[in-house]
């Protein structure tokens, strides 16, 4: 499983990239997309929705499962990946790139303390 070094992770298999200026882009990991199988629909959150770290953010449906996606950090939904409406398979094909889910704004990088580093996330996957 691909686990890029520069990203931060959650135990629920979300990734987050801090882009500066209080912005954080997030998605689900390669492991998560593999476990879900063919993704068929993403119930994207509304722009402006406010979430706290660990809260339910959206639901992703695949052929065999519907999974809740949790906010890896607190913030306000500033941007969503509208391309997923027509091509949810982007998450399967490119989970860390074209398959990003949304950008949260107003985030506090201090919340990193409750996230996993790439090494820690890799260790988590190995344990499972």
């Amino acid at each position: 499983m691909h686990v890029p070094e520069e990203l931060w992770y959650t135990k629920e298999h979300e990734w987050v990239r801090f882009e500066g200026g209080g912005r954080a882009r997030m998605g689900i990991t390669d492991h998560a997309q593999h476990e879900l199988g063919d993704i068929t629909y993403v119930d994207l959150p509304g722009v402006g929705k406010q979430v706290t770290q660990g809260a339910e953010l959206m639901v992703i449906e695949s052929v065999k499962a519907a999974s809740d996606v949790y906010a890896p950090v607190s913030g306000t939904v500033g941007e969503v990946n509208t391309a997923l409406a027509d091509a949810p398979e982007l998450i399967n094909k490119d989970p860390y790139g074209g398959g990003w889910l949304c950008v949260l704004s107003g985030v506090d990088e201090g919340e990193k303390a409750r996230l996993l580093s790439a090494a820690e996330y890799r260790a988590l996957l190995e344990r499972q």
């Binding site: 068929t40 449906e61 695949s62 065999k64 519907a66 809740d68």
Partner: peptide, 13 residues
């Protein structure tokens, strides 16, 4: 199709 909505997958949701 769209079985992800159903009880055997979503359970209490």
């Amino acid at each position: 199709t769209l079985q992800a909505r159903e009880q055997h997958i979503r359970r209490e949701k």
